[in-house]
Design a binder for these strands. Structure first.
Length: 454
RNA sequence: GUAUCUGUAGUUCAGCGGUUAGAGCACCGGAUUGUGGUUCCGGUUGUCGUGAGUUCGAAUCUCACCAGGUACCCCA
């Protein structure tokens, strides 16, 4: 086939849209039940807004948009060529691209909050369901265009917000009937660990290495750390952290002694303890303190959270955390926010794999009127109008084709009821209703039709 | 960036050196002019990813290129 959708992007068929909307509707209704307000932001942002917020890897994965028109003045061409020749792609790109597609919804939201600070009420609780784009190589559970479903609370330091977001996560996955584990950590603890072994500047290296613990094991992590310039002494002092085990309480008590001399670490542990305690009061029992959880995004400063499906091999399906300084970058200081993001496409893949989509979401039309000809279908139009005003979706088959074809249409469209109204029925004011699931049919009076479907 | 697998009908795939390249599904028609989903019969569908090489002979073997998937990295 010659013309295809761009690699990593997809068309969605009607059935897929019905399933996707089931996910979006579930998340939206939970968000609304907590009083979150919806916003949208543009697909593209200035690169100055996006660059430098996601870490080195993130910058590489930004889709950049070529400036329109005379994008490169001839006098600049030689310096552009020079940058290209030296493989300084970002520098070269900045000369011909000023815009890029958004990489997530959080950074544009921070820009939004700064721009509209006088028009919104703080603490501001917003939700946003839109696509984001990443120039990644696609594979299972990884797309170049995918939907994030974000909820953030900005303008409040309270840890109640963390708890509310965890409640939302729990509620959404309950409603979707998907078993998950919520992994929780705190950047302050990670920063304290880095500080205690004397490598404050290497938080990223430490977190990335710790994050790989379950993948490459203790030896692998230690090897990686020594490649990153950590001495054997550093690694030895880190070992109790790398080998931490047990329940949430046991892990916390191990850490308490480890970070007791570090103010930030103590604070992080207190925050973590508070959130875990409150989770217990609201009945969330699948939260796990996971010291290996790091998250690549630069802007997180406090709680960080990630959700994994228990019964499917899939990357994280929800992520989030607290960011104390994100709006500061755009010129609004001392506004802290915390947010989460559901990855709708990965959740879709999980539900599909476990066959957890409800059957009834396939039904778009409840009743099909079989078309027997001009006179008969005219009567059907009348009855269809009545059904619709009673809020029952229905349609009249447009051609008086063979019955087999019309019935097949109802079957393929998952229409649960078919109405037959032919010559006989017209003459005695009746109508035949066939249940497509059971195959049973009944004959009723035409004026009883609305009542029948109520 | 690294590794690995796969490109054959609308689709899922079989054929893996030897006549004119097949099957299921889908689609169309019929058995059945007022009954779908189950059954039976018939029909349509191809630059075998592209190019070169090996060979008497290539969908099949080799190489290059193009396209797609998967794993690592990272992430939702």
């Amino acid at each position: 086939m010659e013309y295809k959708a761009v690699k990593g992007t997809r068309d969605f068929l009607p059935l897929q849209m019905q399933k996707r909307n089931y996910i979006f509707d579930t998340i939206t209704s939970v968000y609304k039940s907590h009083g979150f307000l919806q916003i949208e932001t543009p697909a593209m942002e200035n690169l100055s807004t996006l660059m430098g917020k996601y870490g080195e890897e993130g910058d590489k994965l930004l889709f950049k948009i070529l400036d329109s028109g005379m994008f490169l003045r001839s006098e600049k061409f030689s310096s552009f060529e020079q940058e290209i020749n030296q493989s300084r792609i970002n520098k070269a790109a900045s000369m011909i691209c000023e815009k890029g597609l958004r990489y997530d919804l959080t950074v544009p939201f921070a820009r939004f909050v700064v721009n509209h600070q006088n028009d919104i009420v703080f603490p501001f609780k917003r939700y946003q369901i839109q696509p984001v784009w990443r120039a990644d190589k696609p594979q299972k559970g990884r797309y170049r265009e995918f939907y994030q479903c974000d909820a953030d609370i900005i303008g409040s330091n309270s840890l109640m917000n963390e708890v509310e977001l965890l409640e939302i996560i729990s509620e959404v996955f309950n409603r979707l009937r998907l078993n998950v584990t919520i992994k929780l950590n705190n950047r302050k603890i990670l920063a304290a660990i880095a500080s205690i072994i004397g490598h404050e500047d290497k938080i990223t290296e430490i977190t990335v290495a710790i994050d790989k613990l379950d993948k490459i094991g203790l030896n692998g992590v230690e090897q990686e750390l020594s490649q990153d310039g950590f001495t054997n002494d550093d690694i030895a002092s880190l070992r109790p952290i790398l080998q931490i085990k047990g329940s949430n309480e046991e892990k916390i008590s191990t850490l308490k002694t480890f970070v007791s001399t570090n103010e930030q670490g103590v604070k992080g542990l207190e925050e973590l303890q508070y959130v875990l305690d409150k989770c217990k009061t609201v009945g969330i029992d699948n939260v796990e303190f996971d010291i290996t959880l790091a998250r690549g995004l630069n802007y997180y400063t406090g709680a960080i959270v990630e959700v994994k499906a228990d019964d499917v091999a899939m990357g994280s399906i929800t992520g989030g955390g607290r960011y104390d300084n994100l709006t500061g970058i755009f010129g609004l200081k001392d506004v802290s926010g915390v947010g989460i993001s559901f990855g709708a496409d990965r959740i879709y893949d999980c539900l599909e794999e476990l066959d957890l989509f409800p059957e009834d979401i396939k039904t778009a039309t409840n009743v099909l009127f079989i078309n027997f000809g001009e006179k008969e279908s005219e009567k059907c139009l009348e009855l269809a109008k009545n059904l619709r005003s009673a809020n029952i979706s229905c349609e009249v088959y447009p051609d008086s084709s063979k019955m087999q074809k019309q019935m097949k249409y109802a079957n393929n469209r998952n229409i649960p009821f078919v109405c037959l109204l032919g010559e006989n029925e017209i003459s005695n004011n009746t109508i035949v209703i066939k249940n497509m699931l059971s195959g049973e049919q009944t004959t009723i009076n035409q004026h009883e039709l609305c009542q029948y479907f109520k």
